[in-house]
Design a protein around this nucleic acid. Structure first.
Ligand code: FES
Ligand code: FES
Lengths: 142, 142
DNA sequence: GTGAATGTTGACAGAAATAGTAGGGTATAT
DNA sequence: ATATACCCTACTATTTCTGTCAACATTCAC
């Protein structure tokens, strides 16, 4: 039940974009360098995020990426599902063709259904803006 | 964020044991056959469950496995964490030595903390008995 | 006691998913 | 024109997951 690097890197990168929302495009190598990640690898993730409409790219010199909308309108859930695929712990929850049983009914499915519901509730309720606010709060305390 | 076969097979097998709770030990090949799983593989999972004290093994002829306690006192959470390791989406939540950042504070950790909390709440609130009850209810409807 | 059934253990191998690399192409600001 | 930075696809390396195997230990039925 681990998140892969796709989700982790992607969410952090999106947070960086959120921090500089409204300041124009930010180059990828900037973000990659700051977090010690492979620029090429991040690029793959950003490509997916762009196609999903979460970010906008600006090509050419002085180009880069920026959020497609206000940080408070982008949820963590949207980001994670875009990068990780659906967050279902088992495939039968999202793919009609998958079933673990032939004969008897599956007794475990309802457990997994509750897991995914709960998980989606949490991640859909957190926006990038919430992350920023939380971070500021923590810095205040220090 | 997928559950591995360890958790899936293990939970189903435990459910089988729960169905026959109080009827003495059940041989592994019995369960394996019924669900079309490798007996040897299931064996590995049961070994872990036994060490965790969730099941009791009876050796020798007519031996097998049975639940160590009443189905209503065994939670899905206990089973899944035993087989899958902790359910944390990232390691830093459970391992002090892991941190994703050096300099700036990590803004994503609080997201993951909420995820694991929510997940644990759900799976700890479901017992094997609940699964049995749910299943019965569904059969009634049919 | 003997033999059959069953659990116990650890090592190992194949398969699949993940993570990361490489390189050529395209658009744009200057 | 040229440098910059996004765009795309294919490939490779690494790790994790899944499953197999074999030798061994314990207990039951007789
Ligand atoms: S059908 Fe999905 S877990 Fe059984
Ligand atoms: S320290 Fe765990 S996600 Fe950053």
């Amino acid at each position: 039940m681990k998140l892969s690097t796709r989700g982790r890197y992607g969410l952090k990168a999106m947070y960086q974009l959120a921090l500089h929302y409204g300041e124009g495009p930010i180059a990828l190598n900037n973000i990659a360098k700051k977090q010690g990640l492979s620029e090429n690898y991040l690029e793959q993730l950003f490509s997916v995020l762009r196609k999903e409409g979460l970010i906008i790219s600006v090509r050419g010199a002085q180009g880069g990426y920026m959020l497609a909308k206000d940080p408070q309108h982008i949820t963590v859930g949207h980001i994670l599902r875009t990068l990780e695929g659906n967050m279902a712990p088992v495939d039968c929850l999202t793919d009609e063709n998958v079933k673990c049983d032939r004969e008897d009914e599956c007794a475990t499915k309802f457990v997994y259904a509750q897991m995914i519901d709960s998980l989606n509730n949490v991640i859909d309720s957190i926006t990038l803006q919430d992350m920023i606010d939380e971070q500021k709060k923590n810095e205040m305390i220090k």
